[in-house]
Design a protein around this nucleic acid. Structure first.
Lengths: 192, 192
DNA sequence: TGGCGTATTGAGCAATCACTCAAGTTACCC
DNA sequence: GGGTAACTTGAGTGATTGCTCAATACGCCA
C-alpha cells in the first residue's frame, strides 16, 4: 500500500517541527511521523536532513517576504507598511508563530550547527532581510516620513535586533497581552 | 595512572562548550575531551548531562549577578551602574562572551529541550534576572534619575528583550565595532 | 608494609542517530 | 495484458548517543 506524497505539505510539516524543536533535536523519526514519509522517500525528495532544513528556512523567508510586500503595497506609507508587517506577521506556519523572523532568530541562536551549508543559508537569508528593511527605511526617508539625515542601514540593523529581542521574549512570556504591547511599542518607535 | 579532577574547572569548561555548541549538539565525548574527565567521573561529579547543563547555567547566572552587584556598588547611580553592566559584562567565560545574558538567551532559543528540568531552570534564572533589573529601575526612580511615573516592570522587560536582540545581532555580525555602537546606544537609552 | 575506603578508569551497554538500497508497488503508454 | 520507468517501502547499515559498572589505582592510617 503506497502513499503518494505532497512534497510541499511535507516541507511545511518539517518547518513546523524544526521550528518547535530546533534542528539538532529533531530526529528523522520525528520527521517521518510529521511528514508521513518513509526515510527513503524523504531522501529521494530532499537529499538530507540538512538540505531539508535549509529548504524550510528558505520557504519561511520567502513567505515572510511575500507577506511584507503585500502589506507594503496596501499601506499608505513605507513606515505604515513596516508597522503592519511587524504587528500582523504572525500566521506564517501552522505552528505557533509569534513574530516575524522568529524562525530565523531561533535558527541563528541554536548555535554552530557544525554544518557550513546551514550557517551560510541562515546568514544569506538574514542579510537579505536586513537589506529589505534598509530599503524600506530609505523609501521612508525619500517620502519625508523620516528626517533626511537618518541612517537607513543603522535603522535596519536596530530593527533586526529589536525583532529578535521580541522573539526571545515572546518565547518565554506566558501573557500574550504583554507581547502585543511590546510589538505595538516597537511599531510606534519606527517613526522615531 | 589516575588524574585528580577539579570539579569547578570542569564545570567552566562545560559551560564554554555548551555555550559554543548548544546543549543538544554537545556530546559526552565532547565534554570528556573538554573537561579531561572520563564518563564515570563526570557522572559521579554531576549526575547527568542535563544536570551538568543546569549547573553551568546557574554558574553563569551567579557570575553575572556578582559582576552586576560589583558594578552597581562602584557606580555613581543606579542607571550608571546598569550602563556599566551592559557595556562591560563581556568576559564571563573563557569562550567568546559577547554580552550579558547571552548564554541564557541562547539556552532559551535552543528550543524545547524536551527536558523539563532544564526549561524550569532557564525560566527561573531569567525571571530572577528580570527581577533584579526591575529593582534597579525602581532604585533609579527613587533616586530621581527617572520620572516617578516610570513603570519599572515594563522597563525591565524591555531591557531584557533589548539585550537578547543585541545578543542575536552580535552572533551574526562580523564587525565588533557595530556591536560596540549598538551596546553604547542601548546604554544611553537607559536614561530615556 | 598491609589493608581499607574512596576516586578513577574505560570497555561496553542498549538505544538511537542519519542514512541506504534491494525489493515491492504503482502509473502509464502501447 | 505486457513492459517499463518512477516511486514507495522499511528492514538494516555502521556510527554515535547518554550512561553504567566491574576492575583498577590511589591516598591514608595503623
Amino acid at each position: 500500500m503506497n502513499v503518494s506524497h505532497d512534497k510541499d505539505a511535507a516541507l511545511g510539516a518539517a518547518l513546523d517541527l524544526f521550528w518547535q524543536q530546533g534542528y539538532a533535536s529533531t530526529s528523522l523519526k520525528d520527521l517521518e511521523r510529521a511528514t508521513g514519509m518513509h526515510p527513503g522517500s524523504l531522501y529521494a525528495a530532499f537529499g538530507s536532513k540538512a538540505k531539508l532544513y535549509c529548504l524550510s528556512l528558505e520557504r519561511y523567508a520567502t513567505r515572510l517576504q511575500t507577506l511584507r510586500a503585500e502589506l507594503l503595497a496596501k499601506a499608505s506609507s513605507p513606515l505604515a507598511g513596516l508597522a503592519a508587517f511587524i504587528t500582523e506577521a504572525h500566521p506564517l506556519s501552522n505552528a505557533e508563530a509569534p513574530l516575524p523572523v522568529c524562525y530565523l532568530v531561533k535558527a541563528t541562536l541554536e548555535s554552530s550547527h557544525g554544518n557550513q551549508m546551514i550557517e551560510e543559508k541562515i546568514a544569506e537569508l538574514l542579510t537579505k532581510n536586513d537589506a529589505v528593511f534598509e530599503d524600506i527605511f530609505q523609501q521612508a526617508i525619500d517620502a519625508g516620513e523620516l528626517p533626511a539625515n537618518t541612517a537607513p542601514h543603522k535603522r535596519a540593523r536596530q530593527l533586526s535586533a529589536d525583532l529578535a529581542g521580541l522573539c526571545f521574549y515572546a518565547l518565554r512570556a506566558d501573557d500574550p497581552a504583554v507581547i502585543k504591547e511590546m510589538v505595538s511599542d516597537l511599531a510606534h518607535r519606527l517613526h522615531h
